[in-house]
Design a protein around this nucleic acid. Structure first.
Lengths: 248, 248
DNA sequence: AACGGCCCATCTGTATACAGCCTACGTTCT
DNA sequence: AGAACGTAGGCTGTATACAGATGGGCCGTT
């Protein structure tokens, strides 16, 4: 059976989109029957999708049964980013301290940094080369994790970034809309390069610290974005975030 | 509906027990129909349990459909412990660096350390006061996480320790059977005390480092246990572990 | 008019029937 | 005898029917 077009996957994607787009408010109960006709799938695959989103953290179980949309505040976002940075930092350290790192994978990582250099040197990040940057950025992170050589760690990181605003490129789109954009991209890219160097030089502590700081750049982007009415709604899953004070 | 005695929970517990006890071999396909009669539940709650165990990491999805029992090797266990130590270290740092820590929660943490002292000073850890120690140990870890004051971090840690050999007290039972038992308990308890002191003194880096090292004690216990034929089968989920060389 | 109890609508949890697909075994052809 | 093809069995994915429980609304009473 083609899983990529299975009813379960379809329900999962549609439902996740429904939640992230804010059509379902935080705290709101997610009833099955209304969604059955809304998503065009039967209850069984819908339930599977609900269970999955519950594990992902977008939904929380209601004690009496069923699920409700989970809400987040700023501190939750910061914590999620810090968790990702910590785990990716661990991956960077593992990669650096590994006994026999794959020379090919190391070369692939450095190639990735070079490719990012070319994208950034060519021009400012616009919507045109934006997707390209995001893809390279994600590839960089994937390669560091691959170099760590630990399936369990990779799996845990994967689980940790299921929250929409925790992943590495969650705020890149926000970043591009900020006045500080170019500075941020420059700093991030320098961190990419230093991390690759640290891994190659077997400097585990340095690689770890750099990767953690790299994640904190995402936090700074988020802080800037949240204090700006215009960029606020660009944050992924903005509808789930309970802003302090008045809402945007 | 009483969730604690629901068919889904019953299936989940029985199935988890079946996997951890080794009745289902790693790599073996977990078919639904045979389990329906074996567990006495219908396919629907059984499927829910399978999905859940897939998210927990005990099962892995088969590309063509269904699930298989996941296997682990020593490196996987070490990575899982390191991940837990890293996240709990983060929690300890959060707890230490928190703006206004709850004085009551801090007192509860110190009370927990004192209680552990009393258990350890009274006598050697035997099967008698063993459960007591495990409970206090888990309470200590819970209280540090509570002091961190981050629901997202707590949730991520909860998710990270779903692997049976990743949790804080996974190897305590093994530890008690080792010749080095008393030394290990003494060291662990000193770490407990120092972590509490570091949190109280707002020494974030120290609290984090201590908690990480505390987790590495579990790793040392595991290493000792795995090199001993007698203690090897005491490791939780031992049936899932592919030992290097010949099997025990 | 306010409060309490009863009833109904609705929802979840569960069981089961059905359809398509994968796999493995047996048979047949070369 | 070996390989390839066909068939049958079993398995998963999906849909739907049924039961228990829960919560809200309405009506009656005070």
């Amino acid at each position: 059976m083609d899983l990529s077009s299975s009813q379960t996957v379809r329900a999962l994607l549609k439902l996740r989109e429904l939640i992230l787009s804010g059509e379902l408010q935080p705290g709101e109960r997610v009833s099955e029957l209304p969604l059955v006709e809304r998503l065009g799938v039967s209850r069984t695959p819908l339930r599977a999708a609900l269970l999955r989103l519950g594990d992902e953290g977008l939904l929380e179980a209601i004690p009496t049964g069923g699920f409700a949309v989970r809400g987040f505040d700023e501190r939750d976002l910061f914590a999620a980013i810090e968790v990702r940075g910590t785990l990716e930092g661990l991956a960077a350290r593992f990669a650096a301290e590994r006994g026999a790192p794959d020379a090919e994978e190391l070369a692939a990582l450095k190639e990735c940094v070079d490719a990012l250099d070319r994208v950034l040197q060519r021009s400012a990040i616009t919507t045109k080369n934006f997707a390209n940057y995001v893809e390279l950025n994600e590839r960089f992170h994937s390669r560091v994790i691959a170099l760590a050589g630990s399936p369990v760690l990779a799996w845990q990181i994967e689980r940790a970034i299921t929250l929409p605003f925790a992943s590495a490129s969650a705020f890149v789109m926000v970043q591009a809309a900020l006045p500080e954009a170019q500075t941020m991209f420059t700093i991030a890219q320098d961190q990419h390069r230093c991390i690759a160097q640290a891994i190659e030089a077997r400097e585990g502590a340095r690689a770890e610290a750099l990767m953690q700081e790299h994640a904190r750049l995402a936090r700074r982007n988020l802080e800037l974005a949240l204090h700006n009415q215009r960029t606020r709604e660009l944050v992924p899953g903005a509808g789930l975030i309970r802003f302090r004070g008045r809402t945007g």
